[in-house]
């Protein structure tokens, strides 16, 4: 990279600020924009580097957009770049939502706004269900994943209806442990059969 570091930092800030300010629909919509900005336009990353980044951003916890910003920022200019990119991508949300939050309750006092929200609440159910179904379609379906899926779904709904206090974090950890455990058994079996 021949450009001066300060220039790159400024450009990173502007790029991520723009991406944070204009992507509707969350992380996945952002990936298309990121590719356009960093691979096609600026040519700061190769296609392969970009795909590595997407794999990492999607398999680590946290919002995909934040993960991508931290990763790309670090790849291009190190720690400072990652800090600036991460702040830049979250800043538009912070500004826009803070302003909305100041007026939200007053806004809800309007009769027609309250009416609109009786419909919008229903739409949220639809949106969450539709995101879940989309992810279910993408899930690799083996007897194990389907069993884990079904048990989690039933237990989660039952716990919620019977007001049992059980954090979803435990479900996630149990799933992870089952995954590690089965990978190990599978690996051991392979090693045994080799002997």
């Amino acid at each position: 990279m021949k450009e001066k570091k300060e220039n790159i930092l400024l450009k990173l800030f502007l790029s991520f600020f723009k991406i944070g300010a204009f992507t509707f629909g969350g992380g996945y919509a952002m990936i298309a924009l990121l590719e356009n900005e960093f691979v096609a336009n600026k040519k700061w990353l190769t296609k392969d580097e970009f795909l590595d980044m997407v794999a990492i951003a999607e398999s680590t916890p946290g919002p995909v957009a934040i993960n991508s910003a931290t990763y790309i920022g670090y790849k291009l200019t190190g720690f400072l770049g990652s800090l600036i990119s991460t702040v830049a991508v979250a800043l538009p949300s912070l500004i826009i939502i803070y302003i909305i939050s100041l007026f939200f309750n007053a806004f809800m006092e309007f009769k027609y706004v309250a009416y609109a929200f009786t419909g919008i609440r229903v739409c949220v159910v639809y949106l969450i269900a539709s995101a879940g179904i989309k992810m279910f379609k993408g899930l690799k379906k083996t007897p194990l994943t389907l069993t884990v899926f079904t048990l989690t779904l039933i237990t989660f709904i039952a716990f919620s209806l019977f007001a049992v206090n059980f954090s979803s974090i435990y479900f996630i950890l149990i799933g992870g442990l089952i995954g590690i455990f089965t990978t190990c058994i599978f690996k051991c079996k392979k090693e045994v059969s080799k002997e």
Partner: peptide, 9 residues
Amino acid sequence: GIRPVIVAL
């Protein structure tokens, strides 16, 4: 292991 859990949640 966590993928099916996330979808179920």
